[in-house]
């Protein structure tokens, strides 16, 4: 009886997580701006994957009686890598598509992306090359 309730709980978790992953992908399609699209995979998917991981960990623990810690590792990897990949995607976007003066200025100095790139623009940011 209790086991059955737990199984239902795990199933609900998997479905709920799947719905969140779906919403994240839908956001990727629907939102118009590249920076907005970046929000969908960094958040909506973390709960999606997270729910699947918790369900997997709990399920294995309950059915096989072994405590499964590998799901926790996947979660750690996810929490370390997701912000980093988002950060570098954002920086490439800033560099290629965003005019510097449309950003709010930092307290002092320059944003790191534009640091050292002056008006003459040695990297050719003003050119309309294939990179844009």
């Amino acid at each position: 009886m209790i086991l059955m309730a737990l199984e239902w709980g795990l199933a609900a978790m998997l479905v709920g997580g799947g719905i969140f992953a779906l919403i994240g992908s839908w956001g990727l399609l629907r939102l118009p701006d590249p920076m907005q699209r970046l929000h969908a995979p960094t958040k909506a998917t973390t709960v999606g994957v997270g729910a699947a991981l918790v369900a997997s960990g709990l399920g294995l623990t309950l059915t096989d009686g072994v405590i499964s810690l590998q799901e926790a590792l996947v979660a750690v990897f996810l929490f370390v890598t997701a912000p980093l990949s988002a950060l570098w995607l954002a920086r490439v976007h800033l560099w290629q598509r965003v005019p510097k003066d449309s950003l709010p200025p930092p307290v002092s100095g320059d944003w790191a992306v534009f640091h050292g790139a002056d008006a003459a623009d040695p990297a050719g940011r003003t050119g309309d090359g294939p990179a844009r």
């Binding site: 970046l38 950060l87 930092p106 002092s108 100095g109 320059d110 944003w111 790191a112």
Partner: peptide, 22 residues
């Protein structure tokens, strides 16, 4: 990292002197 994972915000860049986050 926290900013990226939490409510509706993503870290996009940092100031060259490390005193501001974009």
């Amino acid at each position: 990292g926290t900013i990226t994972m939490t409510p509706g915000t993503v870290t996009a860049d940092w100031a060259a002197d490390g005193r501001t986050l974009l």
